[in-house]
Simulated scan of single mutants.
Amino acid sequence: MTLDDPTTGVVLAVCVATDDVTFDNIRSSGIDKRPQADRIAVGELGLATDHVVDTKYHGGIEQAVYAYSEREAARWAEELGRDLPFGWFGENLRVDGMPITDSVVGERWAIGDDGLVLETTIPRTPCRVFAAWADEPQWVKRFQQRADTGAYLRVVTPGSVGAGDIVRIVGQPSHGVTIRDLITGTDADADALTTLLACDDLGPKVRREATRKLARA
């Protein structure tokens, strides 16, 4: 299902890790997310049946849920010449019909009819685990340069989520800084980043990423 309204999307799959995966000389990981048939409760720290192994770099309030775009996944699948099933990017939600990496930082999404509201925070940073999982040459560099990273989200209002749920943008800050800007910020983004950093309610990780990009801009 694809929706033409850019403020509305659809959850194609809800994915969680049921087992850890271990790579040689690398820590265990919960990157192996698999689609679930049932609705899943979502609380402050994410999907109830999911788990995070490396809590230093993953999970937590600002990274409670990870969403990835079906359209960006399709571009990667074409480039790599392989199927990239739901959950392959380690995402909890595979979403179609609306921008994910190009969503505005602090944008709020109402998902389904059970009251769930999420807010975009920061991009995904590729790591050695993701490189081992992908098993593609120079994967970290390629993923970072493409900048189709998907978005982490915090939980504003708990609820539940299931495949087929409609996603509606119900709030969008005026600063205009996108998740992608926190990866590729340039001189043109300096004023917007300054406006973002003036917000009093920024989470620590959002403030960290915006500060880094403003310093480079």
Rank of each mutant, 00 (worst) to 15 (best):
D191F: 03
G185I: 05
R124Y: 12
A64P: 04
D38M: 10
T121R: 00
R108V: 02
S174N: 13
V177E: 01
E70D: 15
L84D: 00
A147M: 08
L196F: 00
R154A: 02
D24W: 06
I31F: 15
A192S: 10
L84S: 01
G203F: 01
E136K: 03
E209A: 14
D83Y: 04
P126I: 13
V129N: 06
V14E: 12
F143S: 10
I166K: 06
E78L: 13
R71K: 12
N25C: 09
T149D: 10
V206C: 06
C199P: 02
V42A: 04
P173V: 01
C15K: 11
T18H: 11
G112A: 07
V104P: 06
T211N: 06
N25V: 13
R208I: 06
G159W: 02
S160R: 10
P173A: 00
Y57L: 15
R154Q: 05
V52R: 12
D201A: 01
N92W: 06
G30P: 12
A134M: 15
S69H: 07
M1N: 08
D83V: 13
R34S: 14
K56F: 14
Q36L: 11
L202R: 00
A215H: 08
V16R: 11
S103T: 15
A188F: 11
D113V: 11
T157P: 06
G90P: 15
A77G: 03
L116Q: 02
T22E: 10
T186Q: 13
D54V: 12
A151I: 04
T8V: 14
N92F: 05
P204D: 11
V14F: 13
A77N: 03
T49H: 09
R142A: 01
R108I: 00
T22H: 07
L93H: 07
D20I: 13
H175V: 07
L197E: 05
P158K: 01
E107Q: 15
T22G: 05
D165W: 01
T55N: 13
Y66M: 09
V129F: 03
V161K: 03
H58L: 11
L45S: 03
T125W: 09
K33Y: 03
T18G: 11
W133V: 02
T121Y: 00
C15E: 13
H51K: 14
L116H: 03
L193H: 10
A74Q: 14
P158E: 00
I122M: 04
V156K: 02
L153E: 02
R180A: 13
V206Q: 07
P137E: 07
T8C: 11
A48T: 06
L84Y: 00
L193T: 10
G171V: 03
N25E: 14
A198K: 00
E79C: 01
Y57F: 15
I179C: 07
K33M: 05
R82D: 04
A192I: 00
V11E: 02
A77Q: 06
V42T: 08
D191R: 10
S160D: 09
D191T: 15
A163V: 03
K141D: 09
E91K: 12
G43Y: 01
F143M: 12
K213F: 05
A74D: 11
M1K: 13
A74R: 14
T211Y: 02
A64I: 03
G87T: 08
Q145N: 10
L153S: 06
